[in-house]
Simulated scan of single mutants.
Amino acid sequence: MKQAILVMGHGEQSTILQKTIDILDDKDIDFFIHWDKKYRQPDIRAKHSAICFVSPRLNIVWGTDTQIKGEILLLKEAYKSLQNYKMFHLISAVDMPLMDVSYFKKFFNGNRSYLGFDNNSSTVANRVRYYYPFSNINFRAHPLWTKIVILTNRFLQVDRWKKYKETSIYKGPNWFSLNREDVSKVLEANLNKFFHSYCADEVFIQTLLPQLNNHNHQSNDNFAALRYIDWNRGQPYLFQMSDVEELRKVKNTEYAFARKISTPRLIDKVFNE
């Protein structure tokens, strides 16, 4: 069964990504990479996996619809491939695998998808209700701009989601492992309602695929997505060399990837030493 790993990367993250590819390098696993237009595209290689850098390259800005467009670009490129991939995994270039290649291939059989849902967020609707006119501004880094946009929307009584009142809005981690059937549903959907929003990359797939909500994992939406992420020690925590034993304990369990890591040496230590 062929699988596609979709990578969002930028800056100097390529050394970590190369180590991830080294671990999962296999004829049945290929990599589709979007590298932020602001940075030089790195030289990434594999012995067995195919490596595809998607285009056009976008200028990705945190919290804007450019993140959604980057993900969709990756999904479209992989979905239309003649390889007929059965699973699609979205990661960042600073994530590391927590499964060796044989375990990874056995774990993912294409029968189900893995997506996290945060059912405790009361303000999620505001992310898509208001109109954010700029895709080149990180609104978290510019709180004054955010305040101006929100006040303007409230003054004009903007509620873009009103016409979609039959649709509930859900939130969760933007990292996922989806099978081909669910990717097809995402690509066939009307995505315009998620553009010009705030952090809607954590909203759009959960809202399009609400049937994947596993209520048994409401307390840990990252676990539902098979991602090992620690929000208690950081935003999120950056795993260090001192965390090798912690990561070894969850290797080849029910976590596919850990996010984020500080150095490619950590992957070597967890897998090879």
Rank of each mutant, 00 (worst) to 15 (best):
L144V: 15
Q157P: 06
A256W: 03
S55D: 11
K147V: 14
W175L: 06
R160K: 13
R259Q: 02
P56V: 06
P236E: 02
F117V: 11
L73Y: 04
I229V: 07
V250W: 01
M241H: 08
T66F: 06
Y237E: 05
P143V: 04
I21N: 06
P210A: 09
Q157M: 15
I72D: 01
Q211D: 10
N153S: 09
F176K: 12
I33Y: 12
N190R: 09
Y237V: 02
K106I: 14
H196A: 05
S14Q: 15
Y79P: 00
R160Y: 07
R57H: 03
L74V: 06
I68D: 03
L187G: 12
L75R: 01
L209M: 00
G110Y: 02
S197Q: 08
K185A: 07
T152A: 07
D36G: 10
K47S: 14
Q83K: 14
T146G: 05
I51F: 03
V101A: 03
Y255M: 02
P264Q: 10
D100P: 05
Q83A: 15
D221G: 00
Q3H: 11
S242F: 08
H10M: 13
T167A: 15
I68N: 01
D28W: 06
Y114L: 07
R45V: 12
R154K: 14
M96V: 09
Q41S: 13
R154I: 12
N190Q: 12
Y164Q: 06
F194G: 07
K249Y: 11
T66K: 01
S168A: 14
I68C: 01
P56C: 05
L209G: 04
N138S: 04
G172I: 07
P133V: 00
K80D: 03
S121Y: 11
F271Y: 01
D230R: 04
N111T: 15
N120M: 08
A256Q: 09
V94L: 11
K80Q: 10
D159H: 08
T20K: 05
D182N: 06
V270D: 00
D43W: 09
K106V: 15
N213L: 11
T146Q: 09
V250E: 04
F223E: 03
Y228D: 08
W62Y: 05
Q13R: 14
V183S: 10
N136E: 03
K251F: 07
A258C: 05
H48V: 12
I72G: 06
K269A: 13
Q18F: 10
Q206R: 02
L90Q: 09
F117P: 11
E188H: 13
D182M: 03
D243V: 07
N174W: 13
R45F: 12
R160P: 02
R265S: 13
N190D: 14
W62D: 10
N192V: 07
T123H: 03
A256N: 03
F239K: 00
R45L: 07
D230A: 03
D36N: 13
H215S: 12
H89R: 04
R160E: 07
E246T: 15
T152R: 11
G116M: 05
F53T: 10
L58T: 09
F155M: 12
E188D: 14
N252S: 07
N126C: 00
D30P: 11
I148G: 08
L187M: 07
